[in-house]
């Protein structure tokens, strides 16, 4: 994947596929410790320990449309390439938390990329789920919660295309501000 935000999209799609009703995303950029951590926690059906242990294996998948499942395998490879690791914690019936960590300054680390596009895609395509997004950069942070947006919107659903467009620009502006830049550069 060319951007970490594409891995993030893939992780959130996994959570939705697992029947999650709420998904909590956190991205922690720590320039002082030179770490980047991306975590996705869901309340989906979870995995038995045997499946969780094999989840990052490219020949493990729950799909019946194909016999390979590359999402977590690609992410694990990206983590290992950048002096990081992939951790999967799962409890059947309770949910799964996937945490990917990287050395932030590593030359092979892909950019975070279009996070705003990832969030607009997920929220626009799945207006029923509750998503929180928490992005820390050093001392500053940017937060988003679909629950809060829904309160403001009342009976208007989040998947109205004009609302998705607003959401994408709102996140891009918020993240640029977080980094202290005029425009989000990933």
């Amino acid at each position: 994947m060319r951007e970490l935000s594409l891995h993030l999209l893939d992780l959130i799609e996994n959570a939705i596929e697992a029947g999650a009703r709420s998904v909590d995303v956190s991205i922690i950029e720590d320039p002082a410790q030179d770490r980047l951590t991306i975590a996705v926690a869901d309340d989906g059906r979870g995995m038995a320990p045997e499946l969780a242990a094999r989840a990052a294996d490219p020949f493990t998948t729950t799909r019946t449309t194909r016999r390979v499942g590359l999402g977590l395998a690609l992410l694990a490879a990206a983590c290992e390439r950048c002096q990081g690791s992939l951790d999967i914690q799962s409890t059947p019936g309770r949910g799964t938390t996937v945490t990917a960590s990287f050395r932030r300054s590593h030359i092979d680390l892909a950019p975070l990329g279009d996070i705003a596009g990832t969030l607009a895609t997920v929220i626009g395509g799945n207006p029923g789920i509750e998503l929180t997004y928490h992005h820390v950069f050093g001392e500053r942070q940017f937060c988003l919660s679909t629950r809060e947006l829904k309160e403001r919107l009342g009976e208007v659903p989040l998947n109205v295309p004009a609302i998705c467009e607003w959401l994408r620009e709102y996140v891009a502006d918020g993240l640029a501000q977080l980094r202290g830049e005029a425009q989000w550069r990933g």
Binding site: M1, L6, L9, D10, E13, R63, G69, L70, G71, L74, D114, G117, T118, A120, T121, G124, G125, P161, A162, C164, E165, R168
Partner: peptide
């Protein structure tokens, strides 16, 4: 409906989805 499996994501489905949302919003459909 946009395919958003790992295969779709790797092939550019996110840009397709955001483009469609923007186009539908712009045209006021």
């Amino acid at each position: 409906v946009v395919g958003m499996g790992t295969c779709g994501i790797a092939a550019g489905a996110r840009e397709v989805m955001t483009t469609i949302l923007a186009e539908v919003a712009k045209r006021g459909l």
